[in-house]
Structures are given as C-alpha cells and as structure tokens.
Simulated scan of single mutants.
Amino acid sequence: MTAEVNNEYPKASYTILIGATITYIAGLFLLLSFAGPYWIESYPDMFSSFKHMGLWEYCFDRFRFPSYQYDKYFDGCHYIFSQELYVIREWLLPGWLMAVQTFVTLGLILSFTAQALLACVIVRMPLRTVLRYEWIFVAIAYIMVVLSSVFLFFAVATFGVNCYRRDWLLYPAFNVLSWSYAFAVIASILFGMAAAPLFLEARKLYELRLEAKNLVAQMQHSQPEHALHQLRDQLHQQQQIGYFRN
C-alpha cells in the first residue's frame, strides 16, 4: 500500500528529461575541455619547441624564451602556476587568457549547479520541496544553462581572436586550434539547445501554478460541494492536457 501511494506523485515530464540530457552531455564536453591540454597545438611536421597547451598546462620540447636572460630550456608539460614556469608566467598568461579561464570556470560551476537541480527534479528528491517549487528549480536551471552558454561563447570567441597574436606564442603560423577548444564550442552550442526545452517547461509549470492558485481562490467563494466538483473537473482537464503534451 505504501509503495502504491509513493508512486502516485507526478513524474518529471519528457521536456525536462530532454533538456536535462542535453545539459549533461554539454557538461561532459565542458569538463573535457576544461581539463584537456589541447586548446592549441603545433603542427607535428614543423618540429616546433612549443607542443600544445590547455587552460592550465603548457607543453614544450627544449623551448628557450628569447627575452629570458639566462640560457634555460623549458621541457615537458607543466602546470601553468608551477615553479618551473614561474619566470615566464607573465608571458604565458596574458590578460585575455585569464579572462578565458574565468569564463570557462564560471560556465563549469553554473552547469554543474544546473545539473544538480535538474537531477533533483527528475528523481523527485526531496519530494515535497520539488513538487512545491518545481517551476523555480527548472527556471533557475534554465538561467544557469543560458549563462553557461554565454560564458563559453565569450571564452571561445576571445581565445579564437587572440590565440594567433605574435606577442604570445612564438611562430603562431605553426599552430592550430585543437580538440579541447572544439569541445568548448560544442558545449556552448549544446547548452544553448538545452535552454529551449527548459524554458518551455518552466513557463508551463508556472502557468499551472497560477491556475492552481486561481482555483483555490474560487473555492473560497463557492459552496463546498460545487467547489469539489469544479476542482475535480479542472484537475481532470489538466491531466488530459499534460498527457497530450507529453
């Protein structure tokens, strides 16, 4: 009997499932882009001392920085804030690249928060809170997904415009954008696609909530038996509308 009662609450709609699925896929692409050290790389045939880099890592092969007064080679892959790259960090990390790091980090945080909210809506936990504030959960997730898409767009646009500057990496003609950058572009597009079903679902849930409030207000000014029949008819109509929408 208890299991039957627990299964009577309304499940998440297909629209939410579609939006959440796209959001999760986009989040995976964003995570790989965030951690991947291949935003830009050198052509293998050019035998460049610069190999590849990501937002947080640079890889060199016996690279010598011309402006450094000591005869020092930078070799291997190193974290951008490591002691090994300390002497050339100002050159490796210009202001526009720090802006890219900020945009991608904000997008990652917002996307993970949106995924957590959508997971609560889908699994209905905590049950009472989700059923009462479902439209708020979905609306907040929608806003975060949109912001993630916008931040990633700014990130890939800023990086694409500045990555071939001659005051950054030497011999920019030897370099090409790589898969980590492509994953960020894909994530930005997918977040934009996920925003559409989330917006539609948030608006539908908000309208249903307004209808429920109006129904309660009408019940307070009508006879109990008449109000009960009216409530039953309107709930039946809403269930039919929700069935055909799904």
Results as ranks from 00 to 15, higher is better:
78 H>E: 13
81 F>N: 13
82 S>G: 14
83 Q>E: 13
83 Q>N: 13
85 L>S: 05
85 L>M: 05
86 Y>N: 12
86 Y>S: 12
88 I>T: 14
88 I>P: 13
89 R>P: 07
90 E>M: 10
93 L>T: 07
95 G>Y: 00
96 W>Q: 00
96 W>S: 00
97 L>I: 03
98 M>E: 04
99 A>I: 00
99 A>G: 01
99 A>S: 05
99 A>L: 01
101 Q>I: 00
103 F>S: 02
105 T>M: 08
107 G>V: 00
108 L>E: 10
110 L>P: 00
111 S>F: 06
115 Q>R: 09
116 A>W: 03
116 A>N: 02
117 L>V: 09
118 L>N: 02
120 C>V: 06
120 C>S: 06
121 V>T: 06
121 V>W: 01
122 I>G: 12
123 V>I: 15
123 V>L: 14
124 R>E: 09
125 M>I: 14
130 V>Q: 09
130 V>I: 14
131 L>W: 11
131 L>C: 15
131 L>Q: 15
132 R>V: 15
134 E>M: 04
134 E>W: 02
135 W>E: 12
136 I>C: 14
136 I>P: 13
137 F>C: 07
139 A>T: 11
139 A>Y: 08
140 I>P: 02
140 I>L: 13
141 A>D: 05
141 A>P: 06
142 Y>E: 10
142 Y>L: 05
142 Y>K: 05
143 I>P: 03
144 M>K: 08
146 V>D: 02
148 S>W: 04
149 S>T: 03
150 V>F: 11
150 V>I: 12
153 F>L: 12
153 F>I: 02
156 V>I: 10
159 F>R: 01
159 F>V: 02
159 F>Q: 02
160 G>V: 04
162 N>V: 00
163 C>V: 09
163 C>W: 08
163 C>F: 02
165 R>C: 09
166 R>Y: 13
166 R>G: 14
166 R>P: 14
166 R>C: 13
166 R>N: 15
166 R>T: 14
168 W>Q: 01
169 L>K: 07
169 L>I: 14
171 Y>M: 11
172 P>C: 08
172 P>W: 09
174 F>K: 15
174 F>V: 15
176 V>E: 15
177 L>Q: 10
178 S>E: 08
179 W>R: 12
179 W>G: 05
181 Y>N: 07
182 A>Q: 03
184 A>P: 08
184 A>V: 05
185 V>Y: 09
188 S>Q: 03
189 I>K: 07
189 I>N: 05
191 F>M: 03
191 F>D: 06
192 G>F: 10
195 A>G: 01
195 A>E: 03
195 A>T: 01
196 A>L: 06
197 P>D: 11
197 P>H: 02
198 L>Q: 03
199 F>G: 13
200 L>S: 04
203 R>N: 07
205 L>H: 10
206 Y>N: 15
207 E>A: 11
208 L>H: 09
208 L>E: 14
209 R>I: 14
209 R>F: 15
210 L>E: 15
210 L>T: 15
